[in-house]
């Protein structure tokens, strides 16, 4: 039982790793990304291999993206770019926050209360596998505006995922923690606050990451069908008007948005779950 002389401090793991290890991780990430862009460059720009010749060139797309005076009117220096970005990001944040607040509450109730679970779970299992794309016509019918339809569809994608993961999270908590809490005299509120929520947090955060990805996915789908602005809307519009470089700009922006939103969730999760000493995986 010799006491370990040096224990890993709180927040060890990638977040608090040695600087050298962080640099190595950074270069590894850059290596993967570089390979992708290099392949693009070689296949399209340099050799124009077969069907790849149809795609917009990397060099032209990047020049367009960072040009103060873009050919098709959209680059990181134009207001239109930020209008679309803001429209999409706003919808995702709004829909995601509502979906998570409602989903976590329902998930905890159905994880904790047997009766509630018996009522909810079959319905959930039925609704969850239906792709968001299938909901689009129904949602457009019921929602009063195109904007609200897009938000509702983005919400739906995250909602079911959050409920299910939260419920699984509560169910995953070992019975001994509930027993210990009962013996120590925890009230139901204290059990919720100090056992159920922290115990379910690892699953909840895995769910949030999946939900965030699903949000971006269904956002783009619904913007294409019913949007009047936004990154997804612009991807489709640019395709329509044969502005392929603009399309690439929007797609790259979607990737970056998805990455950043996911990284924020990971960071928040790692902070709230310092006691686990390992992060949810991923770079940032």
């Amino acid at each position: 039982m010799a006491a370990p002389t040096s224990l890993p401090g709180p927040g060890s793991g990638p977040a608090g790793a040695r600087p050298a290890a962080r640099w190595i991780a950074f270069f590894q990430a850059m290596l993967g990304i570089s390979i992708f862009f290099l392949s693009w460059f070689l296949l399209v720009d340099v050799f124009a291999v077969w069907r790849f010749a149809q795609l917009p060139k990397l060099s032209v797309s990047l020049r367009e993206m960072f040009s103060p005076d873009p050919t098709f009117g959209v680059s990181v220096f134009t207001k239109e770019y930020y209008d679309h970005l803001q429209a999409s990001a706003g919808r995702v944040v709004f829909a995601f926050l509502i979906a998570v607040s409602a989903g976590v509450v329902i998930g905890i109730l159905s994880g904790w209360n047997r009766w509630f679970r018996a009522v909810c779970q079959p319905l959930l299992e039925l609704a969850r596998p239906i792709p968001v794309l299938a909901w689009i016509p129904l949602v457009i019918l019921v929602m009063p505006s195109r904007e609200s339809a897009v938000i509702a569809l983005t919400f739906l994608a995250a909602f079911f995922i959050t409920i299910l993961n939260t419920m699984l999270g509560v169910r995953s908590i070992d019975e001994v923690y509930f027993r210990a809490a009962q013996s120590l005299g925890f009230s139901r509120w204290a059990i919720l606050r100090h056992v159920v929520i922290p115990g379910a947090l690892p699953f909840i955060f895995v769910g949030l990451q999946i939900a965030m990805a699903a949000c971006w996915f269904s956002l783009v789908a619904s913007e294409i069908v019913s949007g009047t602005a936004g990154l997804g809307y612009k991807v489709w519009e640019a395709y329509y008007y044969v502005q392929f470089e603009t399309m690439v700009i929007m797609i790259l922006t979607l990737g970056i948005c998805g990455y950043i939103s996911s990284a924020i969730i990971r960071r928040l999760g790692a902070y709230l779950m310092r006691w686990r000493g390992k992060t949810l995986g991923g770079v940032a």
Binding site: D174, R179, S183, L184, G185, F186, H194, V195, P198, W275
Partner: peptide
Amino acid sequence: LMVFQETALFPWMTTLENVAYGPMVR
């Protein structure tokens, strides 16, 4: 009070919090 087979200290609380929570919640 029960001391369980495997540890039942709440993993999300520090040792001090684990010890203090019983008297605290009451």
